[in-house]
Amino acid sequence: MRPFDYLAPTDAATAVRTVATNPTATYLAGGTNLVDHLKLGITHPDLLVDTAAITTAGITDHHGGLLIGAATRNSDIAADHRVRTRYPALAEALLSGASGQLRNMATAAGNPLQRTRCPYFQDATTPCNKRRPGSGCAAIGGHTRGHAILGASDHCVATHPSDMAVALTALDATLHILGPDGPRTLPCTDLHRLPGTDPTRDTVLEHGDLITAIELPHNPLARRSRYRKVRDRASYAFALVSVAAALETTDGIITDARLAFGGVAHKPWRAYRAEQALLGQPANDTTYRTAAEAELTDAQPLNGLDGGNSFKVPLLTRTVIATLRNLDQR
């Protein structure tokens, strides 16, 4: 690990300027991903700027919704009764990720910014366009079980690992950001980007941008939301596929829906096409299947040494059906 300086500033604006003007500086929050990357030699910052004293922990009522401070621990978000009753998909997503210890460390703002668990990205000895631009992609033609079926490119087929971000994407959450030019907001649906020709960037954030809070908007629909995750182990594993969903029905007809997928793309995949296919239709398995298939018409499964990931298309379709069926019966 390369030596680095450590700062624990108490003024957010100063901290943002410090990071924004130093390309080798990075923020430290829970550290669960960053400290591992320091050990693995994936990142080599010269300066860590601790966010502990410049961000707040806690959840407050906000315009009928909730405002989650950036430093709020994942376990505290999942335990909050307002989150559990008004946004159950978010609590379920958080509890389906990592372990009890990690959820006590990981923060609200850090979770959506965690980086892919592509094994080639995490192995500094292999080619990876995300880690070293232009070096190639060892995943293409390699082991692809955990990789993308939607929105990938010839440069990168990695998937975004956060469960929380999938729920935030489905629930129309908004990020509060402090940048060098002051505060602004950004819909969670716009945070993450597809790899295209520049997979080095996971998000649209500029260097130095600091997430200060996550806003959950008032929406009664969110009370009927769920997160379902399918993985190789019953616990403590990343998603093969996951679904965050919310559903509203009147007399058996779907009147509103939110749908986002995890484990299948470089970003949490908001399934707008599937949502449109659900509206006005009877709440039954045929409708759910049609909606899932509408979203997955562009799916491009990968071949691989391990048999590839074409299994994700039927697995995700069935997970969508099961999740929506369960919601309708709630």
Partner: peptide, 26 residues
């Protein structure tokens, strides 16, 4: 030493965390 096994678990201010992913300076 990578946050995967839990053998380093300690209680930090009363809550269980992984000592291997916690920088001592914090």
């Amino acid at each position: 030493d990578h946050g995967q096994c839990g053998a380093c678990t300690v209680l930090l201010d009363g809550r269980r965390v992984l000592a291997c992913l916690t920088l001592a300076v914090t």
